[in-house]
């Protein structure tokens, strides 16, 4: 059996009245790339935040490397987070720092390296995302795709055990996309990093992932290797993979009945 790095058990979570997860269980194997896919708004970003314990579940538990992250003390949790790199969907670069300082920040905060060593690592990470020349720029001077690549460099600056990529490919041209795919693959090969990759890009994801989870409607509709997913006979999975508008996967956000009734009664 696979060596499990993250184990999600019977997870339930809702935002207000809207149930996002109901009794979801999934596993993320150690040292592998796991792709999490699903329609927009199903809660993929939410899942990443739950794993990092930025949100607390209503029920169930999440174990990261054997520790239930939601019962840890604050300082223990912060220790765990030092081992986690996260690429936010929006990049989330610190706007008051340059690109260089952004990437250097986690190193300065959590290591005792001297300025020269930090500089070496930062430039190397920026080089790997093709932005070594942009080190002196401010985040406001970057394009969306560049910002995301800088954020990626920052996420891997500390050589974390777990990296979570929230849609790294959006806004990248085919070349940078290829570079990023290569980078993610290389990260995994060299360091046995566990990666969680959230993406809509079906082909890209299936090509680099070792393990795939497809979420829809608050539950896991399929989990397995890319081959298993490709061969799946599940109608929902097929619809998602081939991007058909009609089928069992709801494309529309659930409508608020109260609003319609209110409209009718007036």
């Amino acid at each position: 059996m696979l060596d499990v790095y993250i184990k999600v058990q019977n997870l339930s979570f809702s935002r207000g009245d809207r149930v996002i997860y109901e009794d979801v269980s999934l596993t993320i194997p150690r040292g592998k790339i796991t792709a999490v896919m699903g329609p927009s708004g199903t809660g993929k970003t939410t899942l990443l935040r739950l794993i990092a314990a930025q949100l607390s579940p209503d029920g169930g538990e999440i174990q990261v490397d054997g520790q239930n992250v939601h019962t840890l003390s604050r300082s223990a949790l912060y220790k765990v987070r030092e081992k986690i790199g996260m690429l936010f969907q929006s990049g989330a670069l610190f706007s008051d720092m340059t690109v260089f300082e952004n990437v250097a920040f986690p190193l300065e905060e959590h290591t005792t390296l001297n300025a020269n060593e930090i500089k070496k690592i930062v430039l190397e990470k920026l080089h790997s995302v093709g932005l070594r020349g942009a080190a002196a720029l401010k985040p406001s001077e970057l394009s969306g795709g560049m910002a995301r690549r800088v954020a990626l460099a920052r996420a891997i600056a500390l050589d974390p055990e777990l990296v979570m990529f929230d849609e790294p490919f959006t806004g990248q041209d085919p070349i940078s996309k290829g570079v990023l795919v290569e980078l993610i693959r290389k990260l995994n090969a060299a360091d046995a990093i566990t990666s969680v990759l959230v993406s809509h890009d079906v082909e890209e994801s299936l090509s680099i992932a070792d393990h795939v989870c497809i979420l829809a409607g608050g539950r896991v509709i399929a989990e397995g290797t890319p081959d298993q997913i490709r061969r799946s006979e599940n109608a929902q999975v097929k619809q998602f993979l081939h991007g058909e508008p009609d089928g069992p996967v709801p494309f529309h956000y659930p409508e608020d009945l109260g609003l319609e009734q209110g409209g009718v009664s007036q």
């Binding site: 935040r49 912060y78 987070r81 030092e82 996260m86 929006s90 610190f94 905060e109 959590h110």
Partner: peptide, 18 residues
């Protein structure tokens, strides 16, 4: 507020920085 909206505050938290 803008730091919050652009997830910079979350980002600090995620890096284990309060």
């Amino acid at each position: 507020g803008l730091m919050k909206a652009t997830e910079q505050l979350s980002s600090y938290e995620m890096m284990g920085v309060d």
